[in-house]
Design a binder for these strands. Structure first.
Lengths: 338, 338
DNA sequence: TTGAAAGCGGTACCAA
DNA sequence: TTGGTACCGCTTTCAA
């Protein structure tokens, strides 16, 4: 049961490859191929269930109707949701998506970019580890169409879609202040990610504006690879007598889960002793005891926008740079007090 | 900044395409190409940062060192975790992974299979919607290397990796019985998925073996697309006076979340009035009030095994069919009582 | 209205 | 030790 090629069809039907190709690409009428010839080809193709070899087509056309998506970690709910949305949207516009998960590893990410380019994808959407300056710059220099999502490089002018990280945290801090909390801790990642920097900045700014002096110990930075282990001492420090916070903001959903676990272990009641808020939510946050107040990200909008911006580049061959910073929702639950 | 091809290198260096190709593929020594020629080529390639066009190579070799992965829904935590594991494992063996999310839509899935084949992937791992008998049979007839994961077609003999669905639920039922619950409800999907059938079967068998007569109303089947809405009446029915269950097993993690939500709305205390157990867990189940007892799936093992089986097929060109049914873990928390 | 042929970027076989 | 060349499957231009 070998695959039939355009050759095979041409031979069987005693017509030329080109004719077959044209008809099968719906350009029969345009090229005034006789109706019956067209029909004959179409029928035969269906009967043999012909389907084109994309490699060959891509090679020949120099494009592949495929966009690549690179995320840091596909098993992170946030990126999984984005990936799904992007795929749906892209399909809808006739593009296919191949994606790769970089495992938060810059090398792997660079490798993925390389692989995808070699596969002649037409464009790229990247949620970057943000440690591949060189590669991103190369993409830009080559004028290869790409858009960054969720994470961008502050030092490189590119098209990107991110969220208002700083504002999101500010809102949260203000909410906590309104609830009477002053000693607000902030648990984030030691990562160099601009998004994390912005969240931290939001925290500092809001505290400053409120006239609360931030005790440096209130800010805890954990390693991505090891946060679950480092969470325990972090929580201990935050809740120790000298630093005693009455609220903690976690910079990601998984930090939040981990943090709550440690707070419980330490028998610290939420929100009575320590209020908790999370950047980014998770299905089930409403069921945790207590339900967790969270900044919710506009995942669908991010995905849609990224695809739209990329398609615009592909269609118009424009290299106009567009930066979008989407607003965040704030979902108030009980973890910050009534 | 155009991409350099093997042609370009050959021309610049006054050697032939074949020589360049051989050297660049590390077969220079084998073919006894002079060291200095090799060096020359290698250097030049590096300098121009040559990288091969995978489309061309794939077209020529008839294979692409890529495996395809199709899941029903990449935003489902379970499949996201599998996807990640599969990718990591595949990379490690020199294969790349392209994946697609079928959105639980059989048509989309068939389309994805088609697209992937057209792209000359070497093999396929599918967590199927289980509604594409024809396509799967075709793959089998073509002797195209593929392995099914998580969901298989009971009527088609294929290689697959699934879990002991029935046993998993049996364990759960027995656990509940031991806790003194007898009126155990079962909330699942109206899906025709073999996995769901097996879970249901496990439930029925365990109840039968325990001598508990199952009230048909205890079994609630919801539509995948609409489960959140249908959960309310389902819970109402299960907890109504005439059917009154004292425990509910949910057949997926999202059904569990949704179910707990409705139980709370109805002011039914867990586990006092109704115990709850879940097939498949979710990060955060330990933090829910009360922490949810769950059957936990061996995700990593599933992913690894699937890749191994596929690679075996690819390497040995064997079409031996292997069926693996992996055992499940049972994580006891408080939602089934102390 | 259709066909022939070149070319996309590689691979691999056969000669030299 | 290297080069020439056919071929992978499809697109596209130019002629017929």
């Amino acid at each position: 049961m070998k695959k039939v090629s355009i050759q095979d069809i041409a031979k069987s039907l005693q017509v030329s490859k080109s004719t077959v190709s044209l008809v099968l690409n719906g350009r029969g009428d345009e090229k005034r191929i006789r109706k019956e010839t067209q029909q004959k080809i179409l029928d035969f193709a269906k009967e043999q269930n012909y389907s084109p070899n994309h490699l060959a087509r891509g090679l020949s056309r120099g494009k592949s109707e495929t966009i690549g998506l690179i995320v840091p970690n596909i098993s992170d709910n946030f990126y999984a949701r984005i990936a799904k949305r992007i795929e749906t949207k892209a399909i809808h516009h006739g593009y296919n998506v191949v994606f790769g998960s970089a495992d938060e590893d810059p090398k792997r990410e660079a490798q993925l970019i390389d692989i995808m380019l070699n596969r002649q994808i037409d464009g790229l959407i990247i949620a970057s580890t943000q440690q591949n300056q060189k590669e991103i710059k190369q993409l830009k220099n080559k004028e290869f169409p790409f858009v960054l999502i969720d994470r961008h490089y502050p030092d490189i002018e590119t098209t990107y879609v991110i969220v208002e990280n700083s504002n999101g945290i500010k809102t949260t801090v203000n909410h906590l202040l309104k609830k009477g909390r002053r000693n607000i801790g902030f648990v984030t990642l030691e990562s160099g990610l601009e998004a994390m920097e912005q969240r931290l900045k939001g925290y500092k700014t809001a505290m400053l504006e409120a006239g609360v002096e931030v005790n440096p110990n209130w800010i805890q930075k954990l390693d991505y690879q090891d946060y679950a282990v480092q969470m325990e001492p972090a929580i201990q420090s935050l809740t120790s007598e000298q630093d005693e916070v009455d609220a903690i903001i976690f910079a990601t959903h998984y930090l939040t889960l981990s943090g709550i676990r440690e707070l419980r272990k330490a028998n610290i009641s939420i929100p009575k002793q320590v209020a908790v808020a999370s950047f980014d939510g998770l299905d089930g946050f409403d069921l945790i005891d207590p339900p967790v107040t969270a900044i919710s990200q506009p995942v669908d909008q991010m995905g849609d926008t990224a695809v739209e911006l990329l398609l615009k580049k592909l269609d118009n061959h424009t290299d106009e740079l567009i930066q979008m910073e989407l607003p965040l929702d704030f979902v108030i639950r009980k973890s910050c007090g009534e």
